[in-house]
Nucleic acid binder design. Structure first.
Lengths: 352, 352
DNA sequence: TTGAAAGCGCTAACAC
DNA sequence: GTGTTAGCGCTTTCAA
């Protein structure tokens, strides 16, 4: 339905003033405007139900007060708190969020292109730490477009990045096991061999390795199961692990599972196989999704500062948009947020 | 960084043609344009790296190819698949999504106002079936703005609505229990007494009631626990239920839990109390979140057509935007999507 | 087949 | 203080 728009000119006419006066009043430049006319303008705005056209304004100001949010893996619930964090910062600053999901680099490039033609003022890219090629981001940078990236590997390129400390998470988780006296510690890792690689999976795995190494402990290769971050993957990995028994191999007494979703699958598989957790197997993981406190047993885990990552990213971008920082300024910020341990029920001290 | 924009005029100049010719070529109205000039324009576009300014285009076309997505309860992961469904339809049609979270009616009204000034072409509202007042939606309708609502109570107002069949879900879930021979069936309901009310909680509860009634079975009031859709709520409700034992009351042999999140809490509480599921208590629920197949035991549940709801809503809105339907057309579509049962492990036949 | 020019609704010089 | 006016980058009559 094509409704007739009420324009600033209508308001001006109705108030018996000029458009620029209306504009001044509406934009708070009213130190130059007389009280009488000011009131008349406001009254007219009210009477007419005038709604300023942000498009027209963007047109002349060459700013849209909009940031593009490009995410890979739209189906991952972890992005909900990230978005919440972003909104928390961006909304009070009157910025809007335009969403674009981009399952791969091709569509990401496409999305950027479209959002740029939409004149967004900046971007936030978020992914599950997938190591996509990022030439297009470098190009974007060189064109002076403000953006920040959440959770993705960017090598040592000078691009602002917010991520959480995956290596530390793996390390702390494993160390927790070690501190309980465990020495036979296996792992169900995330997709560490994927192409493109997943930084988080690789880093968490490395954290596990480093912790073991530091304690002078080694684990046989059969105790490393490579999986895929899914419930089912966790479940199957355990089945595979347990099949070691048949071949006479010893089982680990504890497991570092690279994320909480797999850990839920792990718990299930262990239970289905008749094992008791943590009596027969301690399980520690990374990621503290809401369900993690309600699995059986409740998961001991490292919680990821997900919402905080959203906030930080938004905050950095905002500084950009307010011209407080820019690509010119010394170097891009890299923020690595620490994970914090949640001790619950899935680990017990080592016992013979 | 203020970069010089490349405009259509630059392209025209570079190609030695007029702006209108460039415009024609770019918009596919090139049946009137000579082959030579056409090629020259395209070459110039390429050479200059010209990116049409969508804002300027919106300005004159008075359309933005953007829809506003307003959601209450931004923190609910269920919206991820809804968004995925919406994107699935809207993206191929070249529509963008602008996000606005609005935790209450006030901010919803505010969000609408802002998005309208941004000239979005239409809206999708989604909520967890909360019965907010909706005068502002009626007003929006009367102004001819296209929109559709997901999962919210709108009484019999003539507004297009997509929802899932909550009553049927409660009914089917309970019926499953009945068909297994259960007669002592309690329920942990969602927030049925909230203000504003939650339609889904009320409807699912009613479904439970209707099923019992139909089978001529009644449940004592102590077997109805009112909770809040959270893990913790489910957990505490069970504790309360079990405290009945102390007062010498009989326990139900089966439980209809109104959502899967509470059901996870339920399972946990039952387990912590030393009960075996489903041997000591059958549990059936609604909502088939990814974790539901990996609880211990796996949840028998009714899965909600969440992504489909997103698709349907987007589809209806798209018809609006394409002028295939409008507020003028006979009446608004109401779509109620059926839920489908997932039989897993948490229910067993009745036994004495 | 092509081009000139009039806006779309608004802001911001710049006059007065 | 207030008003006039020239654009912002684009589409679209309307003439040529």
């Amino acid at each position: 339905m094509r409704r007739k728009l009420i324009t600033i000119r209508d308001v001006a006419e109705h108030a018996g003033v000029s458009v620029s006066t209306v504009s001044h009043v509406l934009n708070g430049n009213d130190h130059h405007v007389g009280v009488v006319k000011r009131a008349r303008v406001l009254a007219a705005v009210d009477a007419l139900g005038y709604r300023p056209n942000a498009i027209a304004r963007s047109m002349v100001k060459r700013k849209t007060a909009t940031v593009g949010l490009v995410w890979t893996e739209i189906d991952n619930p972890i992005f909900i708190p990230v978005i919440a964090g972003i909104e928390e910062i961006l909304r009070p600053a009157s910025y809007h969020i335009v969403l674009a999901s981009a399952p791969d680099v091709e569509s990401e490039i496409q999305a950027i292109e479209t959002l740029r033609s939409q004149q967004v003022d900046g971007f936030i890219f978020m992914s599950l730490s997938i190591c996509y090629p990022f030439d297009h981001l470098i190009r974007l940078k060189n064109e002076g477009v403000p953006f920040v990236v959440i959770n993705r590997c960017l090598d040592d390129s000078d691009i602002p990045l917010v991520q959480w400390d995956d290596r530390g998470a793996g390390y702390q988780a494993t160390q927790h096991l070690l501190s309980l006296g465990h020495t036979r510690i296996g792992t169900i890792s995330g997709p560490i061999h994927d192409t493109p690689p997943r930084r988080s999976a690789i880093e968490r795995h490395r954290g596990w390795q480093e912790a073991l190494q530091e304690y002078g402990i080694s684990a046989p290769p059969e105790w490393t199961l490579v999986s895929d971050y899914t419930h089912e993957g966790g479940y199957k990995a355990v089945q595979q692990l347990l099949s070691l028994r048949a071949s006479g191999c010893e089982l680990p007494g504890a497991l570092f599972v690279a994320n909480d979703v797999m850990a839920a699958g792990t718990l299930k598989a262990l239970h289905d196989a008749g094992l008791q957790i943590p009596r027969d197997m301690s399980v520690v993981t990374v990621g503290d999704s809401p369900f993690a406190a309600y699995t059986i047993p409740a998961l001991t885990t490292l919680s990821l500062p997900v919402q905080e990552a959203g906030r930080e990213a938004a905050y950095i971008l905002l500084e950009w948009l307010n011209n407080l920082i820019s690509w010119k300024s010394s170097e891009a910020q890299k923020i690595t947020l620490r994970c914090s341990p949640q001790i619950r029920e899935s680990c017990s001290p080592y016992h013979t």
